[in-house]
């Protein structure tokens, strides 16, 4: 069969989800943010909840997330997305409300907001993009930066004596009674992305069951900040990030 005979609508098995807008993403080539956006769009589309979903975008590279997924959005001040999501969900309990936050946003300036939203057991979903760095502002150290990892503020590598230890905030949040489902995933291969999508879907489903907060960390890359090519960054992530941030489900109250 000729290639031109295959390219017909009835043979299409995978394409851009309709919920992703036609705007060209501002992310660097190969950035994990784009892949995670797509998975969220697919979940919302599969569940048919486009008109019932409200996203809260952060400060960080994903500040413009609202330009890419065609749903209602609010843009929070730095780190405050869980507080805004709390208000949104309480005022509109029949909506699906999720935050999308980087590790600087969630685990540094927004530590108080995420801990208390988890402790209160808000029925929201949190998507946590852990790329171990402040991508947007030029690659400074984040709480999640690995020991020995070079950033613009740890040019000789993160040193525990000087800079403290990497923060495993996801495990901390799992210890709180208000969290229902906690999972850590990645999107560097098709198999990993499928698992991440399932975890995101579970989070959305749980948020409508009133069982508490669902938190999905995506171990991600910031190839620009890490100063590696996108393919090298994915390899570096598997070799180094997964040792500190192992993937898999961490907590599931309905299991």
């Amino acid at each position: 069969m000729e290639i031109s005979d295959m390219i017909k609508p009835e043979n299409l098995v995978y394409g851009k989800p309709a919920l992703l807008t036609d705007n060209v993403m501002h992310y660097c080539p190969g950035c994990s943010h784009g892949t995670v956006h797509k998975l969220i769009a697919e979940v919302i589309e599969d569940m048919g909840i486009q008109d019932k979903t409200i996203g809260i975008s952060p400060v960080g590279c994903s500040v413009f997330a609202y330009n890419y997924i065609d749903i209602d959005w609010q843009e929070a001040a730095h780190g405050r997305a869980p507080a805004l999501a709390t208000a949104t969900k309480r005022l509109c309990p029949d909506k699906y409300v999720f935050t999308y936050q980087g590790d600087g946003d969630l685990a540094s300036i927004g530590t108080a907001e995420i801990i208390h939203a988890c402790s209160r057991g808000e029925n929201i979903v949190v998507i946590f993009i852990n790329n171990g760095i402040y991508g947007m502002t030029g690659g400074q150290m984040a709480p999640t930066t690995l020991l020995g990892m070079k950033t613009s503020t740890t040019p000789y590598g993160r040193d525990a004596k000087l800079n403290g230890f990497p923060l495993k905030i996801t495990e901390m949040l799992a210890a709180l009674d208000g969290t229902a489902y906690i999972s850590r995933q990645s999107v560097h291969t098709a198999a990993a992305a499928r698992k991440a999508k399932n975890a995101i879907r579970k989070g959305f489903e749980y948020s409508s069951k009133g069982v508490g907060l669902s938190f999905i960390e995506i171990v991600s890359t910031c190839n620009s900040g890490w100063k590696l090519s996108p393919v090298e960054a994915n390899k570096w992530m598997v070799e180094h990030m997964f040792a500190k941030y192992p993937v898999g489900d961490i907590k599931d109250v309905l299991k």
Partner: peptide, 26 residues
């Protein structure tokens, strides 16, 4: 190359969602 089996692995991981995948049974 002409070895494509339409598995969609490439399209799933594309951060910019620019790949469409077509597949037929043979």
């Amino acid at each position: 190359s002409d070895g494509c089996i339409g598995c969609a692995s490439c399209a799933i991981v594309c951060p910019d969602s620019v790949i469409s995948v077509y597949r037929v049974k043979i």
